[in-house]
């Protein structure tokens, strides 16, 4: 192994040395030309917007008095804002509960499809994936009608059973949103897991079968370890997705009343309402940046943790 690496390195440095000796100036220009399209895009699509957000986050846009430079006051205010914490705690709790349920279901479905023991697994695969193709707005309307207590499915069930369960009471709304999100994204995650399982060489299964491994042992020792890297990816995607929860609660406010959804229900809704109804763009920018850093930190921690476990194996 180490020997192979060593050989490679020598050959690479040989090539580099060649270039350096004979075509030094030209190489530099060509390199720049190659990275130029990317750099320009990167600059305008990533660096400038983030820089601009950071810039406006240091201003307060007063209705009387216009723009005032206030240094980091928006951030100081944000960290004392109980409405902000209310939203953050809500999405963190939501993530902690919904993401494991969704990913566990997705893995179970992927394993089922990959087991080759299902009839119509292709059809099944598409059906499970289909909700992902339905825009959140449409799916929220659909679920809103289904879970509605007055005329929806739950309403009929309540009537039949004589119960008064309300999926959109302040205590239960988040669970209903969890159901919607799980429904929408399980298929997507399942596909990622399924792709990872398909990449496992079939010979491994044969070898395991010859060694007398049971189906359960194959899952435990071959399939699940093969899913590790996709699991990290899906966890990160899911965390980012749930931290940005916006469409579902935002649309529900028009569908049902007394659902407990406030204008600061999630950090994204809060940012939206600050920017567009309170004209506090600077404060909204500060909130967005803090949430971005928070999300990146958690995603990064997940990645580091995942990698560490992978090396420990």
């Amino acid at each position: 192994m180490s020997r192979q690496l060593l050989t490679q390195r020598t050959s690479v440095s040989d090539v580099v040395a060649d270039h350096q000796t004979f075509r030094k100036p030209k190489r530099r220009n060509v390199g720049l030309a190659f990275i130029a399209p990317f750099s320009v895009l990167f600059l305008f699509v990533f660096i400038v917007p983030i820089g601009y957000s950071a810039y406006i986050s240091m201003f307060q846009n007063k209705l009387i008095g216009g723009k005032v430079f206030i240094w980091f006051d928006n951030y100081i205010k944000l960290f004392q804002d109980s409405q902000f914490y209310d939203g953050v705690i809500r999405v963190v709790l939501f993530t902690a509960i919904q993401v494991p349920i969704m990913l566990f279901s997705a893995i179970a479905l992927a394993l089922a499809i990959d087991s080759l023991r299902l009839h119509g697994s292709r059809f099944f695969r598409i059906i499970v994936f289909l909700p992902y193709a339905i825009p959140a707005i449409v799916s929220t309307l659909m679920w809103g009608f289904m879970l509605g207590i007055r005329y929806g499915l739950i309403g009929s069930l309540n009537k039949a059973a004589g119960t008064s369960f309300n999926p959109f009471a302040p205590e239960t709304t988040m669970i209903s949103i969890g159901v919607m999100v799980t429904w929408g994204f399980t298929g997507y995650n399942m596909l990622i897991f399924y792709a990872a399982l398909r990449a496992v060489p079939r010979e491994l299964y044969e070898a395991a079968a010859i060694d007398g491994a049971t189906e359960f042992q194959i899952v435990r020792h071959i399939k699940l370890p093969a899913l590790r890297s996709s699991l990290i990816v899906t966890i990160i995607f899911s965390i980012i997705g749930t931290f940005q929860l916006f469409n579902e609660p935002n649309i529900l406010t028009t569908l049902v009343s007394n659902s407990g959804i406030t204008s600061y229900y999630t950090p994204n809704m809060y940012a939206y309402s600050l920017a567009f109804t309170g004209s506090q763009q600077g404060y909204a920018a500060a909130l967005a940046l803090v949430m971005a850093v928070f999300t990146i930190a958690i995603a990064y921690a997940v990645q580091i943790k995942g990698m560490k476990n992978a090396f420990n194996k």
Partner: peptide
């Protein structure tokens, strides 16, 4: 008025 919807939620919801 957006703020009113927020502050009145506890009364109307529960």
């Amino acid at each position: 008025r957006t703020s009113y919807e927020d502050v009145s939620a506890p009364l109307y919801d529960s």
